[in-house]
Deep mutational scan, measured.
Amino acid sequence: MASQGTKRSYEQMETDGERQNATEIRASVGKMIDGIGRFYIQMCTELKLSDYEGRLIQNSLTIERMVLSAFDERRNKYLEEHPSAGKDPKKTGGPIYKRVDRKWMRELVLYDKEEIRRIWRQANNGDDATAGLTHMMIWHSNLNDTTYQRTRALVRTGMDPRMCSLMQGSTLPRRSGAAGAAVKGVGTMVMELIRMIKRGINDRNFWRGENGRKTRSAYERMCNILKGKFQTAAQRAMMDQVRESRNPGNAEIEDLIFLARSALILRGSVAHKSCLPACVYGPAVASGYDFEKEGYSLVGIDPFKLLQNSQVYSLIRPNENPAHKSQLVWMACNSAAFEDLRVLSFIRGTKVSPRGKLSTRGVQIASNENMDAMESSTLELRSRYWAIRTRSGGNTNQQRASAGQISVQPAFSVQRNLPFDKPTIMAAFTGNTEGRTSDMRAEIIRMMEGAKPEEMSFQGRGVFELSDERAANPIVPSFDMSNEGSYFFGDNAEEYDN
């Protein structure tokens, strides 16, 4: 993207840094990872977990959730003011799984939030270390993106479920800051804005008074975040219109849905970061690795190297396929839920299948599930090659597409044709070009129609051997075009429920 120079890199967003050079960025990201790792080690000690239990991804998720809940100030305040039966607002906890007599047992633990905050700050040299908290939120978000298709949420806001490739980060909490905003897809931002506008339509006082002023500035800020994701002048001009509207209503909703559809071809720039579970960072720190000293990046080879040398386990339900569970977590670790499966298959070195073909449910185990038949197995999170994460949407291309997802959002900077089903997408653009945004709409449609099938995206960008740390010898991959490109292809993934 041309304006790259004016933006802070995501590592800076990730670490609240002012302008830093590459070495400083690597050190501050490393410091953040160190903090998460030290916190995780301490929690495993508190909970008396064995090494194996500490490497269980379900335990990692519970521990991450506990610290996120302990620092969720708004919710904590709300819980104190609106006490609900049987919930102690000062405590947080969740299921911890232990191996007892050759069987997995679930144990519900409860801790004072104050105590968890103390352990977290102690692991982070006394700081609140917001960057580390956001990092864990993005890992949870990436896992949700890989596990669930947001059909219901899309339909509720009037969008087409086939636009799911635009929904990265749709389950990120509001408090995820600049680093969170960077990884949100165009569809996620559109959905947040539509929800806001709908509230304004239904509630006369939404934009009024002292609160209304705050609401208005939040609305304009979200519009600017979305505008910054678009790469064409016409899309940005249309966002200006939406932002400046005196009284946002149905016309703005129409414009936003139009823009979301246009992003299936004229893709937005959305950041991709490899955020790993805390149970990967903990053992690495415990083994003596100093992330701050060595430096770390979320968008280069580092996460690949770390996963190459990590042992992570997962509980497996009786009829689940461990290899499929591994694929789910591998995609989440690489922030690749909406990437082209052919690119992923090449990088991973084994075939990556669409969601609907995987015999696996989510990673988390519900409290009512029976533990008797639970097994555990090693997650295979290694890769054959590594590639640089991208934040450009890439230019655009036609490809055989599917009944489910009709476009992709690249996660890796790797040369390819970008699949999208042009006739299906263009069919949504018939007729409606009147109104105050008509010239911009016409211009956007013209650009979409001009998108050429034979153009290559990320020209000359390749993948790298894991021994090639400096990215000196790019390998331009070859793809098996007979395979499906979309992950949520004609899909039956479970729906995400809060």
Rank of each mutant, 00 (worst) to 15 (best):
G300W: 10
G54H: 14
V312N: 13
Y148N: 10
L143N: 05
S345V: 05
I388N: 07
D468A: 02
W139Q: 09
E114I: 10
N59F: 04
G209C: 06
A2R: 00
E18P: 13
T396M: 02
L358T: 14
E339Y: 03
N309H: 09
Q459G: 15
T350M: 04
V476I: 00
G282Y: 12
V312K: 05
E244Q: 07
Y281M: 07
Q327W: 05
T350D: 14
G132Y: 05
E18L: 14
L47K: 09
G228D: 03
C164E: 00
N144P: 07
Q58I: 05
T430E: 00
N395K: 12
N498F: 05
M32N: 15
R441D: 09
F458N: 00
E114C: 06
C275G: 12
I475E: 00
W207C: 06
N224K: 15
S457H: 04
P419R: 09
E292Q: 14
L379P: 09
E80Q: 11
V329A: 05
Q399M: 00
P95N: 10
N21F: 00
A411C: 15
M239R: 00
E495K: 14
A251H: 05
E252H: 07
F488P: 03
K198F: 09
G349Q: 12
D497P: 00
S359G: 04
T424K: 01
Y385M: 15
E339D: 15
Y313A: 13
L166Y: 01
E73R: 04
A153I: 06
Q12A: 07
Q168R: 09
K325A: 04
D16H: 07
Q409I: 13
A260P: 08
K422V: 10
D160H: 04
D88T: 03
Q327Y: 03
E443R: 07
G126M: 13
S407G: 12
E339F: 02
R204H: 10
W207T: 02
A493R: 15
R174M: 10
Q20R: 10
I33V: 13
T430V: 05
S9A: 15
I119N: 10
M448T: 14
Q405N: 02
A323P: 10
P477I: 13
Q20S: 15
E107K: 07
F429M: 10
I257H: 01
L341I: 12
R391V: 02
S326R: 14
L306C: 08
M448F: 00
S478H: 14
E210Y: 01
R26P: 01
A403G: 08
F458D: 02
G450A: 11
Q168K: 08
M159F: 02
P248W: 10
F412N: 10
S326H: 11
P173T: 10
R75Q: 01
K422D: 05
E46S: 05
V186N: 10
P283S: 12
K452S: 11
R8P: 09
K422I: 02
Q308T: 03
N417G: 09
R162A: 10
D497R: 00
P173I: 03
L266A: 05
A70P: 01
P318E: 03
G300S: 14
I197N: 07
M32W: 07
G158V: 01
I116T: 13
Q42T: 03
P453G: 14
P410K: 06
F291T: 01
T151E: 11
A263H: 06
F412S: 02
A428N: 11
I194G: 00
A387P: 05
E369C: 06
D255Y: 13
Y487R: 07
M456P: 00
A182L: 05
N202R: 03
C333Y: 09
D145F: 02
S141P: 12
P95K: 11
G249L: 11
G460P: 00
F206G: 03
R156Y: 08
H272I: 03
S402G: 02
S245V: 04
S438W: 04
A493G: 10
S50E: 13
G450M: 11
Y313H: 14
P410E: 00
G17F: 00
Y289E: 01
G94W: 06
E244N: 13
G37H: 04
R55D: 10
I444A: 10
G268V: 15
S367I: 00
K90Q: 15
N144R: 00
R391M: 04
R416S: 08
A234D: 15
N309C: 02
N76Q: 15
I25Y: 00
Y313R: 08
A332C: 06
A237Q: 13
G288P: 03
M43D: 09
A284S: 03
S377K: 00
N144G: 13
I253P: 00
W120I: 09
I316K: 00
A284E: 05
N142P: 10
M136N: 03
I33S: 07
G435H: 03
A401E: 09
I225Q: 11
S467F: 11
D340I: 02
M371R: 00
A472W: 13
E244M: 06
G158Q: 09
L256D: 00
I41H: 03
S217M: 14
D340M: 08
S359Q: 15
T157W: 06
L358H: 09
K227A: 10
A366M: 05
H140P: 04
R19S: 01
R118M: 07
R74L: 14
L166N: 03
A278Y: 01
A85H: 08
G393P: 04
I96F: 12
A332V: 04
S482V: 00
Q405H: 01
R236M: 07
A427T: 15
S3A: 13
Y289H: 15
R243Q: 06
H135M: 14
R355D: 10
L315Y: 06
H272R: 06
G93D: 08
E495D: 14
N370Q: 14
R470D: 04
G450Y: 15
C44Q: 06
E64G: 14
N321I: 09
E254D: 12
E252M: 07
R156F: 01
V29K: 01
M331I: 13
P322R: 02
L226E: 09
F39S: 11
Y296L: 04
N309A: 14
L154Y: 02
S269P: 14
A471C: 05
Q364L: 13
G249A: 10
M13Q: 03
P453Q: 14
T147A: 02
N334L: 03
S170P: 05
R74H: 05
I41D: 10
G288I: 11
K113W: 11
Q459R: 15
G300Y: 06
G462Q: 00
I301T: 01
G209V: 11
G435Y: 06
N473Y: 00
F71N: 11
G158W: 01
K184S: 03
A493E: 02
E107F: 05
V285E: 08
S367E: 02
S217W: 09
R246I: 02
I225K: 05
T215M: 06
Q231E: 08
D127C: 04
C223H: 09
A237N: 07
E294H: 13
T215E: 03
L381H: 08
R446Y: 00
G94I: 12
H324S: 13
S457R: 04
S438P: 01
S9G: 01
P277E: 03
P419H: 13
R99T: 14
A472S: 09
A271R: 10
N21E: 15
N321V: 10
L226R: 07
M105G: 03
L266V: 15
D480F: 13
R470M: 09
W207R: 09
I36A: 12
R99A: 08
G490M: 07
L381Q: 15
Q235I: 06
S392P: 05
Q405K: 15
L154S: 03
N250W: 09
A234E: 06
S335I: 07
G485I: 00
F230Y: 07
N76D: 01
R121H: 12
N483H: 09
A179I: 02
F304N: 05
N125H: 07
D491I: 02
G282Q: 08
E465N: 02
G5R: 15
K113Y: 06
A251L: 14
R261H: 07
Y296T: 11
V109H: 06
T215D: 10
N211L: 15
R348S: 10
E495F: 00
G462V: 00
D372T: 09
K87R: 11
R391L: 01
T232G: 03
Q405L: 02
E107W: 05
R361S: 04
S50N: 08
V183L: 06
Q235E: 05
N432C: 14
Q327P: 11
K48Y: 00
F206C: 11
T188H: 09
E494C: 06
Q459C: 00
K305F: 14
I425W: 01
L266C: 09
N250V: 08
N247K: 09
Q409H: 14
E46V: 06
P453C: 06
